[in-house]
C-alpha cells in the first residue's frame, strides 16, 4: 500500500493537527519511510493466529457500584484554559 499526500491530509484532519502544505509533504516522506519498515510484517503468514491485545490473558476486574469521589471542581478547574460559572468554555459548537 502506498501512502499518498491526500492520505496524509486526511489523517491530519482526523487527528486534528493543523498542517501546512510543506509539513504535509515532509510528513508524507517520513511516513513513507516508516511504512517501508512496517510493511515487513506482511511477509509473514498469520492465518489462524489470535490477535493479542493485552500482555496477560486475564478478565476485567469489577468495581463495586459506590460513589467514592467528592467535588474537586475548584482544584480541577484551576488548570483549565477558560472557565465560567463552573463550565469549561469552548468556541461555539454548531450541530
Amino acid at each position: 500500500m502506498s501512502l499518498t499526500s491526500d492520505d496524509v491530509k486526511k489523517v491530519a484532519r482526523l487527528a486534528r493537527l493543523a498542517m501546512t502544505e510543506t509539513e504535509i509533504q515532509a510528513a508524507h516522506a517520513q511516513m513513507t519511510g516508516i511504512f517501508g519498515l512496517i510493511e515487513d510484517m506482511q511477509a509473514i503468514n498469520t492465518d489462524g493466529i489470535e490477535p493479542m491485545s493485552h500482555a496477560q490473558d486475564l478478565a476485567q476486574r469489577l468495581r463495586e457500584d459506590a460513589v467514592t469521589e467528592t467535588d474537586q471542581r475548584e482544584l480541577f478547574q484551576s488548570v483549565a484554559p477558560q472557565v465560567e460559572k463552573g463550565l469549561y468554555l469552548v468556541p461555539q459548537v454548531i450541530e
Binding site: K85, L87, Y88, L89, V90, P91, V93
Partner: peptide
C-alpha cells in the same frame, strides 16, 4: 449553548 460571549459551556 446559552451565550457565553459567543462560546459554548461544557458540563
Amino acid at each position: 449553548h446559552e451565550d457565553f460571549h459567543g462560546m459554548t459551556g461544557i458540563d
